[in-house]
Computed example of a mutant assay.
Amino acid sequence: MDDRLLLDRIRGIIGEKETEDDCSVFDLGNRFLVMSTDMLHETTDFPEGMTDYEIGWMAAAVTLSDIASMAASPADLLMAVGLDRPDRLIGITEGADACCRSVGARLAGGDIDRHAELTIVSTAIGFVNHEKIIRRSGAKPGDLVCVTGLPGRAQAGLEGDPRFWNNLITPIPRVREGIAFSEGGATAMMDISDGIALSLIDLGLASGVGFSLDPSLFPLIPDIPATRAEDLFLFGGGDFELLATVPVECFPVAGVDTSVIGVVTQNRDIISGGAPLPRCGYAHRWN
C-alpha cells in the first residue's frame, strides 16, 4: 500500500476534484485562492547532514512548489513545528523565512509543540486569476510534454553525488516558471517531487490522456552511465521542477528554460521509447 492507493480510498469522501490537483482551490469571485499543506519528518524526509536552516528551507519549499504548480503567486506560509529540541527552532525559522522571501511570500506564523521526532507541517496560500490557473486536467492529445531543469539531480545528491547535494536539500520553488507557463498557454501542470513517471500517471489520470516519451530528448545528468542517468531522470524523487503540457503552437514558452520530452496521446498508456513506463518513483509505503 502506498500513499496514492491510500488516497484512492478516500476520494469518495473528499471528492474527485478536491483530490485531483496539487492545491485546493477556492473561488473568491475575482480570482482563486489556492492552498496546500505538507508534513515532513526528520527520519523520512530530511537527509542526514542537513542543518536546521536547510530543514526550514526545504519544509517551506515543498509547499510553495505546490502553489507554483498552479501558476499562482504565493502569499503566506504557516508552519507548525513539532520540536525534539527547542534550540532548533531559530535555524528552522530562518531557513523557512529565507525560502518564502525568495519567492515573494511571507512566513506568517504557525504553531510550536514538543515532539519525539522533528516534524514540520507547512501550509501555504496563494492567488491566481481565473483565466491563469493551470490544473492537472487540461492536457490535450498533441500537446508537447515539457519539464524544467535537470530532473534526477536530487536523487543523485541523495545517493552521494556531491555536485547535487544542494539540489536535494534546498530546492527552488519554480514560481516564476509556473506563471510563465500560464502566460505562454500551457494546458496542464504539476510539480515532479515524486519523480516524472509517477507525475505522468497523476497528470494522465486527471486529463484522461496518455504520453509517449522520446528518451533521446531527455536532459540527462552528465558524466554518469546513460542507463543510470535515465533512471534518475524518470524515477528519482525530490526534484521540485515543473511538468507541463504545451500546445505545439505555443512552444517555446517565453521565460522558461524547458525541455520537450514527448507528446500527449489520446491512448491512455504511458510509453517511453516504445515500452510501457514502470510505475516507479518516490512514495510513502505501508506493509
Score class of each variant (00 low, 15 high):
residue 3 D to S: 13
residue 4 R to V: 04
residue 4 R to D: 03
residue 10 I to F: 15
residue 11 R to N: 06
residue 12 G to W: 05
residue 13 I to R: 13
residue 13 I to F: 14
residue 20 E to A: 08
residue 27 D to T: 00
residue 27 D to E: 00
residue 29 G to S: 10
residue 30 N to L: 05
residue 33 L to D: 10
residue 37 T to D: 11
residue 40 L to M: 13
residue 42 E to C: 03
residue 43 T to A: 06
residue 48 E to M: 13
residue 49 G to N: 12
residue 50 M to D: 03
residue 51 T to G: 12
residue 53 Y to W: 12
residue 54 E to R: 09
residue 55 I to E: 10
residue 59 A to E: 03
residue 60 A to Q: 01
residue 62 V to K: 01
residue 62 V to P: 00
residue 62 V to Y: 00
residue 73 S to K: 15
residue 77 L to T: 10
residue 77 L to Y: 14
residue 80 A to M: 07
residue 83 L to K: 03
residue 94 E to L: 08
residue 94 E to N: 12
residue 97 D to C: 12
residue 97 D to A: 14
residue 100 C to H: 02
residue 100 C to D: 02
residue 101 R to T: 10
residue 102 S to N: 10
residue 105 A to D: 05
residue 118 L to F: 15
residue 121 V to A: 13
residue 128 V to R: 00
residue 129 N to V: 01
residue 131 E to R: 00
residue 132 K to P: 00
residue 133 I to A: 06
residue 138 G to N: 04
residue 141 P to D: 14
residue 144 L to Q: 04
residue 148 T to N: 04
residue 149 G to Q: 06
residue 150 L to W: 02
residue 150 L to A: 06
residue 152 G to L: 01
residue 157 G to E: 02
residue 166 N to W: 07
residue 174 R to K: 11
residue 176 R to W: 03
residue 184 G to S: 12
residue 189 M to P: 15
residue 190 M to G: 03
residue 195 G to E: 13
residue 196 I to F: 09
residue 196 I to E: 08
residue 199 S to M: 02
residue 200 L to G: 06
residue 202 D to N: 11
residue 202 D to H: 11
residue 203 L to M: 10
residue 205 L to N: 14
residue 206 A to K: 12
residue 208 G to A: 08
residue 208 G to I: 06
residue 212 S to D: 14
residue 213 L to M: 09
residue 215 P to L: 15
residue 217 L to R: 15
residue 217 L to K: 15
residue 219 P to D: 09
residue 220 L to V: 09
residue 221 I to T: 05
residue 224 I to S: 11
residue 231 D to C: 07
residue 236 G to W: 08
residue 239 D to P: 12
residue 240 F to G: 06
residue 240 F to M: 13
residue 242 L to R: 01
residue 243 L to R: 06
residue 245 T to A: 11
residue 248 V to F: 13
residue 248 V to R: 12
residue 251 F to A: 11
residue 253 V to S: 12
residue 254 A to H: 09
residue 261 I to V: 07
residue 263 V to Q: 15
residue 263 V to R: 11
residue 270 I to A: 09
residue 274 G to S: 09
residue 276 P to L: 07
residue 283 A to Y: 12
residue 284 H to Y: 10
residue 287 N to Q: 08
